[in-house]
Simulated scan of single mutants.
Amino acid sequence: MGLALDEPKENDKVYNQSDLTFLVEESLLETCGSINVEYVEAGPRSGFGISSANPVGGGGCSSGSCGSGSCG
């Protein structure tokens, strides 16, 4: 699971929170369940953290955290 800039696709669910719009692939929601995205203040390691009801591993965010705001 990770964060990326993207355009909406027909299989995305769209969520708006404050001034942000989140796109989540429907298949990811089925796998992960509810998803929480929060900004974590940690000095030079500040960034977005992602957690879900059913954590998934792999990729650059297997820990559930994207310190740079971008995941590989």
Score class of each variant (00 low, 15 high):
Ser34Val: 12
Gly43Thr: 03
Ser68Phe: 01
Gly49Gln: 04
Cys61Gln: 06
Leu5Phe: 15
Thr31Leu: 12
Thr31Tyr: 03
Ser34Asp: 12
Cys32Gly: 08
Asn36Gln: 12
Asp6Thr: 04
Ser46Val: 07
Met1Leu: 14
Gly2Cys: 12
Glu41Asn: 14
Asp19Ile: 05
Pro55Gln: 03
Cys32Arg: 06
Ser63Lys: 15
Ser27Glu: 12
Lys13Pro: 02
Leu3Ser: 09
Glu25Asp: 14
Ser68Leu: 09
Asp19Ser: 07
Ser46Asn: 03
Cys32Asn: 08
Gly69Trp: 00
Gly67Ala: 13
Asp6Gln: 12
Ser63Thr: 14
Asn54Tyr: 14
Ser18Trp: 01
Glu25Pro: 05
Pro55Thr: 02
Lys9Val: 14
Ile35Asn: 05
Leu20Thr: 06
Cys32Ala: 15
Gln17Arg: 02
Ser46Lys: 07
Ser52Leu: 08
Phe48Cys: 09
Ile35Arg: 13
Val14Phe: 00
Ala53Val: 05
Gly47Glu: 06
Ser34Thr: 12
Gly67Trp: 13
Cys61Val: 07
Leu29Tyr: 11
Gly64Cys: 09
Ser18Cys: 04
Val37Met: 10
Gly69His: 07
Ser18Glu: 03
Gly43Ser: 15
Ser65Lys: 13
Pro55Phe: 00
Ser51Asp: 06
Val40Glu: 05
Ser68Asn: 02
Ser70Ile: 10
Val24Leu: 14
Pro55Lys: 06
Ser18Gly: 05
Phe48Tyr: 15
Gly43Cys: 06
Cys61Asp: 02
Gly69Leu: 11
Glu10Ile: 05
Thr21Lys: 13
Met1Trp: 12
Ser70Tyr: 04
Pro55Leu: 06
Glu41Gln: 15
Asn16Thr: 12
Val56His: 10
Leu28Cys: 10
Asn54His: 07
Ile50Gly: 04
Asn16Ser: 09
Val37Cys: 02
Ala42His: 10
Val14His: 03
Val56Lys: 04
Leu3Glu: 06
Ser65Gln: 04
Gly59Ser: 11
Leu20Gly: 08
Leu29Asp: 11
Ser18Tyr: 11
Ala53Tyr: 15
Pro55Arg: 08
Leu29Ala: 08
Leu20Pro: 09
Gly33Asn: 07
Val14Asp: 06
Leu28Glu: 14
Val56Ser: 09
Val24His: 08
Phe22Leu: 14
Leu23Val: 05
Leu28Pro: 04
Asp12Ser: 10
Thr21Asp: 00
Pro8Asp: 10
Asn36Glu: 01
Ser51Glu: 00
Gly60Ser: 09
Ile50Ser: 02
Gly72Glu: 05
Gly69Met: 01
Ile50Asp: 08
Gly58Asp: 06
Gly43Ile: 03
Pro55Glu: 00
Pro8Trp: 00
Phe48His: 01
Val14Pro: 03
Ser46Ala: 11
Gly2Arg: 13
Gly47Val: 03
Ser65Cys: 12
Glu38Met: 11
Gly72Arg: 09
Ser27Ile: 02
Gly49Trp: 08
Ser34Gln: 12
Val24Phe: 10
Ser51Phe: 02
Gly67Thr: 09
Ala42Cys: 07
Leu20Arg: 03
Gly67His: 02
Glu30Asn: 15
Cys32Ile: 10
Gly58Pro: 03
Ser63Glu: 00
Cys61Phe: 12
Gly49Val: 01
Thr21Arg: 13
Leu20Lys: 11
Glu38Ser: 10
Val24Trp: 01
Ser51Leu: 04
Ser51Asn: 00
Leu29Gly: 06
Tyr15Trp: 02
Gly47Leu: 07
Ser70His: 05
